[in-house]
Amino acid sequence: MNDPNSLAIRTGVSGRILEFAKDRGVAIADIGCGEGELLGRLAELGYTRLTGVGWQVNVPPSIPKVENVDFSRPGWADQLDGATFDVMTATEVLEHLVNPFEFLTQLRRLAKPGGQLILTFPNVHNWRSIVGYALGGRFSGFFGPNWNDNHPLHDQHIFIPNHHLVRYFLGLAGFEIVSIDFLYGNGKLFGTTAMFDCRAVTPKL
């Protein structure tokens, strides 16, 4: 997708990987990669060990993929046959899940020691969401008028990613937050998307 927010996410995530993953041979997985735009960008930047993971995956022909992975089911990481990664990205996935904590615990299984996880999700702490909740009782972009109850992974935003709750889930799952940034807008109050850069540590459970 080439809408401004999607472009900002692709630029922000790839820029963060460039900053911390100097070795172009690190193993990178895009979890919930969709049409593979981020993977394509990382390939352009010279990264060679890329994997796309998701339900319906459309990635450049040279990039391996793991399809029919249902992130709403426990134990989905088993489908990757023991693979682990230096860097994982999950852009705009968390808010679609009925059990985001289980998703994060499965990501921890896939992370190498000290591995990097970059999450992006809608910033519900910005002014638009605050006003929407105050006036309409729901955050902007969540449970909208065209809501339906089909498979939760492929429909609208159903998990409200409050930053404090996401931080708590990450800690329990075995990740520490290195930095939080906001994309497509400046700062927490105006940014459209939150980007959490995390590292794999010993789980608190």
Rank of each mutant, 00 (worst) to 15 (best):
P74S: 03
L107D: 03
F190S: 15
Q156L: 13
P161D: 13
F121Y: 03
D3L: 09
A21E: 06
V13F: 09
G36E: 04
F85G: 01
G75M: 02
L117R: 03
S129V: 09
G187Q: 04
Y184L: 10
L117W: 07
T84H: 06
L50H: 07
G82W: 08
R138I: 05
L39S: 06
L189K: 07
E95S: 05
K204D: 11
L183G: 01
P100Q: 01
E67N: 09
E176H: 02
E44M: 11
V69P: 08
G46V: 06
F139P: 07
N148I: 11
R138A: 09
A194W: 00
D81W: 09
E102S: 06
L135A: 09
F143K: 12
S14R: 10
T11Y: 11
P100T: 03
D78P: 06
I180E: 14
Y47I: 12
I63V: 08
G191L: 03
A173W: 00
N68K: 12
H164M: 15
P100C: 03
L189C: 14
P4N: 10
V53E: 08
S14Q: 13
R16A: 15
F71N: 12
G114W: 05
M195L: 07
M195C: 04
L165H: 13
G34N: 06
G40M: 04
L183Q: 01
